[in-house]
Design a protein around this nucleic acid. Structure first.
Lengths: 330, 330
DNA sequence: GAAGTCCAAGAAATCGATTTCGTCAAGAGT
DNA sequence: ACTCTTGACGAAATCGATTTCTTGGACTTC
């Protein structure tokens, strides 16, 4: 790898001039040409590490997500990546597994790697953003928020929960259960509140045992659904507060020999790779990619010195018409 | 962020000694304690950028995959990540979209960021690994291989294609079509050859129009299946050479009003988030995570100076019994 | 024509670690 | 008692860029 010194020597100028050429500072036409030719013939690429050490910052943004195997988050990541590319930033994807220890480790890496900023979906309320924030690096919370004063992009989860539940009601179901995520995670909390609001308002009340907490994954939804079906008065419909748990619930129905078409299912979130008729499941589509893009835009604004007061952008999700089959599902 | 100099000053030693303490070199008990105390009280974390500039290498490995929204690759990424973490390496995930230009860009970043090595699933045969390789950075090809002399981990794709097709045959299907990926990608090529081998050997021959090429995604599978169904003598079964195309094929069947249970479907790869009875689709399960883990192990060996001759590890996939429902699907 | 302004461009400092080199003292060997 | 190792550790060089600081010449301006 050629250095700036070799380029300078070959072009017959000083290293400073080479640097100036590559940073678009004032250099005479003449020398610019010399430098560019020399650089080209040596295949010179500026060493990012040296540049970063000097500039104390890089063009990399860290994206911390809780579950890389959940298509919702990969779609979100795509949104971030798309926006980042437009500004010549790279994205480093970090999988926290909803584990505060892994999360902390990645935050430290982000700090010690001089990354330009962080977008994260906090694994817990106790994230310690102190280190990053005190370094002056911007942070944007996405999907989930944090007690720290940082920008945020989220979804109107309560409304999403309401929409999912209402759709089931309107379809005639009356014994609507809810499979919620782990207690303490605000997204699922709000969606669950949406469910409760509807079942309460519509007068069916909350049946005993119709609220289940589960982990956010397929197996959690499966177990919760199995438990619901084992009740003496099982529900006739269920709302799940995320996408993967709905998959698990569907699998449980099938294993129990119940056709998913005869049971009301609504999910907050889009079911990835669905191979059931679209009308089988009510899906409240979340604008995952847009969420990511918005977060990236806000972060880049901050990186570029935007100092406006903290913002929280709330995106609204609707029960959208089913997507035509054959289209990429997210 | 505190520097090594401040720590040195506070501890009353030289910066060199601080460095030695943090790198486990010989330092007296006494001074070690002084340094550690000083570091702790200042909240010192070594600046990775400075370290990297000096050492000319980092503890980061780049992982280039063609499609981050395909669960096969995210599972692979998990395998890489798991192994990397064990050796205190971080993984940077790069999504090439099967686009040689994006691939090249990420390879340049890997080089100019002094990353320790690269694991990639090449987007095309023409990847230019020259820059990385000449820097002495190890490279491991995963899933797909390259003409460059680098280590590789792959799957016995031909056998996988044979297994998928044979299963359909054994189930009584005789008009077996094949939805293959884009021409020129070796994985799909080999799987398709497996299919051809079986339909030829078993005497049914290759019906006209029963071979379709499609892109590797859901919409590709959907379109190909729709085309197959429109033939005057449609097939009674189909083999898809990857997972997502099978999803698309299933969606096409459903839209055409054909129950997936009455049609033979086999896929090379595991269908993510399946909500159909497991016996509906023959799945040749690919050890994605293991693939990633193996690749990471090989790469780390090389990073640690392993100089044995080039290796190509071939993993075998089998038609495994369906996974019990409710288990995480990948 | 003298003084002031501007600008291209080189010399040298700087970012924060690691590493070579050299020094000094304590312990080993004869 | 005197050389020879050996080991801890400080001083200074180094990695490769960016960014002052300076300088010398061209250009204005009165």
């Amino acid at each position: 790898m050629a250095t700036i010194y070799e380029v300078a020597a070959l072009a017959g100028v000083s290293p400073a001039t080479v640097s100036r050429v590559f940073n678009g500072l004032t250099v005479s036409e003449e020398k610019q040409r010399l430098v560019r030719d020399a650089a080209a013939s040596l295949g010179f690429t500026p060493n990012k590490t040296a540049r970063r050490l000097r500039k104390q910052s890089s063009e990399i943004i860290a994206l911390l997500i809780p579950d890389i195997e959940n298509p919702f988050y990969t779609a979100l990541a795509r949104g971030v990546e798309d926006r980042a590319q437009e500004s010549d930033f790279s994205v480093v994807l970090c999988n926290t597994d909803d584990n505060p220890a892994k999360e902390l480790r990645y935050l430290q890496i982000a700090a010690s790697e001089q990354m330009a900023g962080v977008i994260l979906s906090p694994a817990s309320d106790e994230v310690d953003l102190g280190a990053i924030v005190s370094l002056g690096r911007p942070v944007v919370a996405v999907d989930r928020t944090t007690p720290y004063p940082v920008d945020a992009v989220k979804i109107d989860n309560r409304a999403a929960g309401v929409a999912a539940t209402t759709a089931l009601f309107d379809a005639g179901y009356r014994r609507i259960a809810c499979i919620a995520g782990p207690a303490g995670i605000e997204t699922t909390e709000d969606r669950f509140l949406g469910w409760r609001q509807v079942v309460t308002a519509r007068g069916t009340g909350v049946h005993e045992g119709y609220l289940r907490h589960a982990n956010f994954r397929v197996d959690g939804g499966f177990a919760a659904m199995a438990a619901l079906l084992a009740l003496e008065t099982p529900p006739d419909a269920v709302v799940t507060t995320n996408n993967l748990m709905a998959i698990g619930a569907l699998q449980a129905l099938i294993q129990a020999g119940i056709s998913p078409e005869k049971f009301g299912i609504a999910a907050v979130g889009e079911l990835p790779f669905m191979t059931l008729p679209p009308e089988t499941v009510v899906q409240v589509r979340l604008p995952a990619r847009h969420l990511g893009r918005t977060a990236a835009t806000m972060l880049l604004d901050r990186i570029n010195g935007d100092t406006q007061p903290l913002r929280t952008v709330v995106l609204r999700a609707d029960v959208s018409p089913p997507m035509p089959p054959g289209k990429a599902s997210l």
